[in-house]
């Protein structure tokens, strides 16, 4: 576990999967990132990352329902696994640990 790392984009996608819960599928994740972070993401990049995370065991997927807007095609809904949740937490904590080491920020906080 300690040897596993996530890239920045992978972490972002994993977080989005955790946040969106039942609504976590490719197009929705891409859209959320675009609206919330004002960041251009490519649909194929989102998909490839999702599959990679699934390979690593951080998320799992199942087929959901289709909508008219999707031409009747079903969605693949991703849910975060406990390993994924643990990974997210570990990453968040290590970030905060490092955060605390930054001196200037401490001063300005005072």
């Amino acid at each position: 576990m300690a040897k596993e790392y996530l890239g920045e984009f992978e972490e972002l996608i994993l977080t989005m999967v955790a946040a969106l819960q039942e609504d976590a599928y490719g197009a929705a994740i891409a859209e959320e990132i675009e609206t919330r972070l004002k960041r251009e993401v490519n649909l194929s990049a989102v998909h490839v990352t999702l599959y990679r995370l699934e390979d690593k065991g951080y998320i799992k997927s199942s087929m959901g329902g289709g909508t008219n807007e999707r031409g009747g095609r079903r969605k693949r809904i991703f849910t975060i696994t406990s390993a994924g949740m643990a990974m997210l937490k570990a990453m968040k904590e290590s970030r905060i640990e490092l955060w605390k080491l930054v001196p200037q920020l401490k001063m300005s906080g005072l």
Binding site: M63, R73, R74
Partner: peptide, 13 residues
């Protein structure tokens, strides 16, 4: 096995 959802996402977009 990936085609349907990708196609769906693309159509939705």
């Amino acid at each position: 096995h990936l085609f349907e959802e990708i196609e769906g996402d693309l159509i939705q977009k």
